[in-house]
Design a protein around this nucleic acid. Sequence first.
DNA 1: TGAATTTCTTGAAGTAGTTCAAGTTTTTAA
DNA 2: TTAAAAACTTGAACTACTTCAAGAAATTCA
Lengths: 190, 190
Amino acid sequence: MFTPLFNHIQKFIVLEPSEIDILESHLSISKVKKKEHLLQEGQVCDTLYFILKGFARQYIINSKGSEQTLQFAIENWWITDYLSYHNTTPSHFYIQTVENCELIAIQKSTLESLLIEIPKLERYFRIVSQKSFGAAQMRIKFLFTMSAEERYNHFKKQQPDFVQRVPQYMLASYLDFSAEFMSKIRAGKV
Amino acid sequence: MFTPLFNHIQKFIVLEPSEIDILESHLSISKVKKKEHLLQEGQVCDTLYFILKGFARQYIINSKGSEQTLQFAIENWWITDYLSYHNTTPSHFYIQTVENCELIAIQKSTLESLLIEIPKLERYFRIVSQKSFGAAQMRIKFLFTMSAEERYNHFKKQQPDFVQRVPQYMLASYLDFSAEFMSKIRAGKV
DNA sequence: TGAATTTCTTGAAGTAGTTCAAGTTTTTAA
DNA sequence: TTAAAAACTTGAACTACTTCAAGAAATTCA
């Protein structure tokens, strides 16, 4: 049942059977209904989530009271607020499931013991987070250099299946334009 | 001479004197004049840079041919293109010194041997990159929710000294507005 | 030092998007 | 299976910014 996570880990490091056992003994799977919150703004984030099925998003509520999605996490992605996690400070973000999800939730205390028992995991998380940081830089590049329509087309090309799954207004906010403008782009009225 | 780096590392892990010796034997300091490139678009990035003195920036050239800064790295910060580094793919970015710099450049092969000799460093780089990723998420939040003027005031409040050091047109592009608009914000003509 | 270069400023005209309001379509759940 | 809720569409009016062009100020370095 944890296979997707073990496979993901083994893209970066090699796990001994004994280490897989240790991991299994510490992990558990949660089923979470769509639209449930894994983290609320103001809470201190002390959990990492690995998505097995469904998807989640990180969002904020802007000054006009509307939601803006900063990040999606689909199958085989980690999602959390690392700043709140490391600094033990209140989070600026909400994390919410969008579809019904199966996920592995690892609390800080569990992760810390896992990292002591299997120090190699430090390497796994290092590489994953360095790549995530790289991806965040690319995201900023796209936001800076592309028009709204270009961002939409680029995203659709990179993630054609995901575009079918995600509500348009949510994708619009992720790409930093309004839901109305998304409609016009899709209708070719731009 | 490497003290700023050792201090930075020891914020997150404890180094034995012997480990400091190993580190010292692998590291060297480079002096780089202002406006020199550490990485060019199209090159595969195989080096991490730790800034001791001065500062550098990561930038792109947009479709209109003008430079847009994505990231600054001041004293005690790492800068590199992690995506190019990990995937061995051509970089989308330039990395350039802005002031005369003293920096520690660590090549991939050196870093890999260091990580084998001092596995604890995996933990250091994991925590640093998770926090960087968290900071990148906050940056996207600010870009999404604040007006140009708010972004400028917020940055000035967070980094009052740095605002004095960085050319205004460069900060304007980092905050995602034009140099001309920066002038108007500063003159209170907005 | 002073000429060249880089950086900053200003106003006028333009535009890629937003906001609003109202209606339509699709999905949800009892 | 239907009523309610959520998601999407459309057009008109608006605006936060950009672009352009030209000049002024500051910095660089031969």
